[in-house]
Design a protein around this nucleic acid. Structure first.
Lengths: 209, 209
DNA sequence: GTCTATAGGAAGATAGAC
DNA sequence: GTCTATCTTCCTATAGAC
């Protein structure tokens, strides 16, 4: 069973899975991420995960109870990391505009830089066991709550001109999340340019003065 | 082998799969859609599809060559239908604003009303054979081209104030597409309200005067 | 903790009868 | 076109040796 330490250093060559111990569990986690990303949870076999990790089929089960537990680990690490960058952006000094802009920017850039684990996080949730799904749903609600709270600060202060706060929050998170569907580091867009574009569009949506 | 007639009557109780003939092929297509939606392409078995369609396992293969061909049929019908509503909206009279607003509205509403086939279309593409994937990519490029062309009309006429046309097109399509990830008819949002919200946000992104 | 071996079943696709 | 039967391969998970 791996330690679930959150090592959310997403830039500078670090990896979201660096905190998974011991090494065999980390190798399996990497192999599982590759496979879930490529062929989905249903298309992934435990044999393939084990072999990509350089182990025998049976050895997977001394690190993890099941294929589903491996999905849960990845999904949990990804969601915790995404929430963390959003919270960090919301704690910046400045105006509500500054903070919301930073939140959209960082959320988008996270989905681009971590597009592999992000894609697994966003599109394989239905394969989780009910209790694991509920745990992830809590983090997702928190992500929504953190952004909505900051938007409401800007509405109250008159910085933003929005009637439909829920609609904006939904749209802003959707923009970031959908990046995980199509992003590729071999494409023309850099994470930074993309995040800048979306942050600017979000400011327009808010009718900033 | 089913006829691939496009029956894009998406409202009024009609079904995108109505044009699939004969009836056995249509039943299999419905069952495949259900299963691809629920557990993904990799998690779907031909046995399950056949049994849900009320047939034996082997009978699937007198309508379709493979599981992948069934995915291709669904993906093709969905994409053709989505393109069709976008083209219809682009042919409306009025200003470029009217047309782009209608395009975002209709594209969003399509992904909400057809959220099951839309989810399969958007998230199972990687399972397609290369030649099938290429055929779908053509339709997707056409979808992007149609919207971009109309935005450029509005930019040229001075109706829109956008520097980054590609960024806007990407964001507007993303908003619509991402609806397929989370939409449920049992949720609080109606397709109409959602589409209206996103169409309004798109107009703000365009800096309409 | 890792291995080999295996249980016990299910996978995609095909063959041949009706 | 649909059925039953089957080929061959593969599946998740466990058992027991080292």
């Amino acid at each position: 069973m791996p330690q679930e330490l959150l090592q959310a250093e997403t830039s500078g060559g670090h990896d979201l899975l660096d905190g998974v111990e011991p090494e065999s569990a980390q190798k399996l986690a990497h192999a599982a991420l590759d496979s879930f990303f490529e062929v989905g949870y249903g298309g992934t076999t435990t044999r393939h995960i084990s072999q990509q990790a350089g182990m025998s089929t049976g050895s997977l089960y001394s690190s993890y109870r099941s294929k589903e537990e491996l999905l849960f680990l990845l999904t949990q690490l990804g969601h915790q990391s995404a929430l963390q960058v959003l919270v960090a952006a919301s704690e910046q000094p400045g105006t509500a505009s500054d903070r919301v802009r930073a939140m959209v920017y960082e959320f988008t850039i996270w989905h681009a830089r971590n597009y592999r684990i992000a894609r697994v996080c966003q599109y394989q949730l239905a394969a989780l066991a009910p209790e694991h799904h509920a745990a992830i749903a809590k983090i997702r609600h928190e992500i929504e709550r953190v952004l909505r709270a900051e938007v409401e600060v800007g509405v109250a202060s008159g910085e933003f001109d929005v009637v439909d706060v829920k609609g904006f929050v939904l749209a802003a998170l959707s923009l970031g999340i959908d990046v995980a569907r199509w992003f590729s580091p071999t494409g023309r867009q850099t994470p930074e340019a993309l995040a800048g574009s979306y942050a600017g569009l979000a400011m327009r949506m808010l009718g900033t003065v």
